[in-house]
């Protein structure tokens, strides 16, 4: 008898996993259904994927999403890396700084979205990618910051002392020792920021101008216009991309220190 195991916890655990994955599984299944209706399974088919790839508005949305995700994750990772370097050791006000860095995590997305819309409009910038990029960068900062911070906290400060002892100045110490040791955390932060930006809906929804629709915004409008099998296909693609990236990020996070 395993004394640690409480009764029914295993059953509940498996139910939770089923609950989390069954709906997604059904969605993926329907995306391969040859029939237009959701209930009747007729045959296996990839025609909705073919249609998706040839849909020009989905192509545009996918491009916008990718451009946005790359710039946002790059920008937020650089900012987060600098911040993590500064917040490495305790100083007065560090917890306030960290609370600020993590603010996008706790504030409701809808409030951030409408507030950014007001800012963009009142400053007079046109809606579109140019206003979406800084909004995405700011929103992604905590997602890039947390893995880098975890890595930097676990780092032995003696490494940098050793480098300085061996004639490296501050800059080359950072380049030759600090950055290589932080690299897995930086990559993990980058991928998580990428995924976050890719899936970010409300901010893009309010800030997207004509021609700057992203994939989530496209999917939402398509759902509102009526469910179609193409939505299943493009949703499945988004799921697969996100899951693959998270796995990559996990692998980075577990890399040897």
């Amino acid at each position: 008898m395993n004394l640690r195991r409480m009764p029914f916890t295993r059953e509940i655990g498996w139910l939770v996993l089923a609950f989390l994955y069954l709906p997604v599984f059904i969605l993926v299944l329907y995306s391969f259904n040859g029939n237009r209706t959701a209930t009747v399974w007729t045959e296996f088919s990839v025609k909705w994927y073919a249609r998706t790839f040839h849909n020009p508005s989905i192509q545009v949305a996918a491009w916008n999403s990718i451009i946005l995700a790359i710039t946002a994750s790059f920008g937020s990772t650089v900012l987060a890396l600098l911040a993590a370097m500064a917040a490495r050791h305790f100083f007065k006000g560090r917890s306030a700084v960290e609370a600020t860095l993590n603010a996008p995590l706790i504030l409701p997305e809808i409030v951030i979205a409408v507030a950014t819309l007001i800012l963009v409009v009142s400053v007079g910038v046109e809606l579109g990618l140019m206003s979406m990029i800084p909004a995405h960068v700011a929103f992604c900062i905590p997602f890039a910051y947390l893995p880098i911070r975890a890595r930097i906290q676990g780092m032995d400060a003696g490494m940098e002392e050793a480098a300085m002892d061996l004639y490296c100045n501050r800059f080359s110490t950072f380049r030759r020792v600090t950055l290589p040791l932080l690299w897995p955390g930086v990559l993990a932060g980058f991928t998580l920021a990428f995924v976050t930006s890719l899936d970010l809906f409300l901010v893009s929804f309010f800030l997207a101008g004509p021609g700057s629709t992203t994939l989530p915004v496209y999917i939402y409008s398509a759902i509102k216009a009526g469910i179609s099998p193409e939505i299943n296909a493009i949703s499945t693609i988004m799921l697969v991309v996100s899951i693959a990236l998270v796995m990559v990020s996990f692998a980075f996070g577990r890399m040897r220190r």
């Binding site: 709906p23 997604v24 059904i26 988004m238």
Partner: peptide, 14 residues
Amino acid sequence: WTSLLVRNYAWLII
């Protein structure tokens, strides 16, 4: 880490 939109859409189908 997967799209909230997509996951809720799955329930819409179900």
